[in-house]
Nucleic acid binder design. Structure first.
Lengths: 354, 354
DNA sequence: CTGTTAGCGCGTTCAG
DNA sequence: CTGAACGCGCTAACAG
């Protein structure tokens, strides 16, 4: 394999000249540059990433920590992985994919061996051990999702605004009684940001509009979910709209609705919050899509921007003055909160109303 | 950040001694080893990956090339990405995720800059340009899926055997007339291996069992699919079983079946081929799951085994004698063909039969 | 200005 | 167990 020396020899110049041609960080005469470029072509030369990294202390790689909830693969994670990778490439970064099969071990190893310059954490939980590790190592990172506590840059859909918007739009369409199928109980128990904020949004919008919004806590067990939903659908006064944040079991949920003899949207309007863009099977429903592309772009940028803040020394002292970049106070961390947008068909009016 | 020299200084030994302690490739006295290990602990030392790579010419990274069919994200790809990553970790390798947003450019860049030691290609197509590039660069690789042409190691479900098994099992349950919903037309046109092999399996099993197996070519457009399926379901004599290889539109497909007034499995037995393991919504159907875990394990091992074969020189000459490792003749490439297994409930008998 | 020389980054490994 | 060369590219300092 060709090295910079081979190129230099072939072009009849010094290796440093080749390097300057590559980086463009210095003026090189027309003739020399052409000779060098010809040599590069002919030898098919490409600089070794490892040599560059060793010298520059920059890998131009982002570590992407995918959550791997045992047994519960979430399609969304794959989608984010692809989109974050594309976004990172837009900044000249590659992406190293990591699972939790090793707990936080993998992340620690990658950070300490300097395989990556920064990390992107997916599906962050309250008091996420990965956050602790990165903080302890002073490793730059950004989060997909947020939990109001981590002192790291983050991006997220404004879940409170999203659910509130779904409620308000339903009210605007004429609905007065509706169900909100929130996140699953174990997600609330884990204090996932989206779960808590979604509940807040429902409550806030209910108060603001005066609508009757009944919260049905979802459950990961489809049978329990079906039972709860069934009860809520038949309780009087009968609800005319169903706002759904817990989407993993959507097919089953629609079956339950159908089994209750309710046609959508004639008898019951179903509005989704946090659906995947372009997903088959949600196209015909009014919804607020999860802004996967925008979140991915934002998180890549936040992670890359964080490089150069966290790299100085060891773990930041607790007395550290709040300067530029990633600080210790959550409220100061850079972030990108995305406002919800309605998509899909217009919300249908309740039965018996024009 | 601590380096090997810092550790050496603290332990009062030479850097090379520290290196030998780390690698274990040489005998080091008890005392010295402990001193070194203590110094490592105290300094929190971890070797730089880039320095190791520069020296050893091994990154211990696999490039995973995810297909990104524009607009058509496939959940399965995310699943494979996770599982391949886990499998690679089992061999001490990390995974760099790549999209084709850049065409083959990304793969070429990663190969030439030696960011990875080998590549794993997902969703390989006939005459896949990525395969050409890797072959041209002499870069080790292994494929998820195969097309009978690429001279690279591969793993795949035996799709022919899988569809044949589904047919035979249906016949064993008493069905004599069945539909086979094959892959979508554009997949057949692209000569995707799974699409062609699936069709072969259906034909072979039909011939062997004498059953009436009607092939319904699927289509990516849900409406066209629904129309075709509807026609086939109502054509006389009425089929009693439906074998489905094209699963992306399964929910829509089941809707169509229901809309035709057919209850599953009472009026019509539905058997899936190539379903995702543990996926909600397929649990209640007899099926042959795609062996994602086994394929991932196999492809990681094949890719890693290929390292050391392709690394010698430039593009292999066409006259190269077929030796060990990756050879030029497709039939010689190492591979791992996985036999199908039925999962889920037993196939129900046709109506009117016990 | 344009090109060259030399040292560095960090861990590995062979000869001593 | 140590010394020193080495892998490869970057870049500050120097020479023409």
């Amino acid at each position: 394999m060709a090295t910079i020396k081979d190129v230099a020899a072939r072009a009849g110049v010094a290796p440093s000249t080749v390097s300057y041609v590559l980086s463009g960080s210095r003026k090189i005469s027309e003739d020399t540059r052409h000779a060098v470029q010809a040599a590069i072509e002919e030898l098919g030369y490409h600089p070794r990433a490892s040599a560059r990294t060793l010298r520059s202390a920059r890998t131009r790689v982002l570590a992407l920590a995918a959550p791997r909830v045992p047994g519960a693969y979430r399609a969304i994670d794959g989608r984010f992985a692809i989109d974050v990778t594309d976004a990172a490439r837009g900044h000249g970064y590659d992406v190293l994919l990591m699972t939790d099969s090793d707990g936080v071990g993998g992340l620690r190893r990658v950070a300490r061996s300097r395989l990556a310059d920064a990390a992107v954490l997916m599906a962050v939980e309250d008091r996420d051990p990965r956050v602790e590790v990165l903080h302890e190592l002073g490793f730059p990172a950004a989060l997909l999702g947020h939990d109001d506590h981590a002192a790291l840059p983050w991006t997220d859909l404004d879940w409170e605004a999203a659910v509130a918007l779904a409620v308000r739009e339903s009210v605007a369409a004429g609905h007065r009684r509706m169900l909100f199928l929130s996140s699953a109980e174990h997600e609330v128990a884990a204090r996932r940001g989206y779960a808590l904020h979604g509940l807040d949004g429902a409550r806030r919008a209910a108060a603001e509009t005066g609508a009757d919004v009944r919260v049905v806590p979802s459950h990961r067990d489809p049978d329990i979910l079906a039972r709860r939903l069934n009860e809520a659908l038949t309780a009087r006064p009968v609800p005319t709209a169903l706002i759904v944040q817990h989407l993993i079991l959507l097919p089953r949920l629609l079956d339950t609705v159908a089994a209750a003899g309710l046609r959508v949207p004639h008898h019951l309007t179903v509005v989704l919050v946090g659906s995947l863009p372009d997903e088959l099977g949600t196209r015909h429903l009014p919804r607020i899509d999860l802004p996967v592309a925008e979140m991915s772009t934002a998180v890549a940028r936040l992670a890359i921007d964080a490089i150069g803040s966290g790299r100085d020394d060891g773990p930041p002292s607790s007395q550290e003055p709040a300067g530029a970049g990633a600080s210790t106070r959550p409220s100061d961390a850079p972030h990108h909160l995305i406002q919800p947008q309605m998509a899909g068909p217009v919300i249908a009016p309740p039965p018996g109303r024009p």
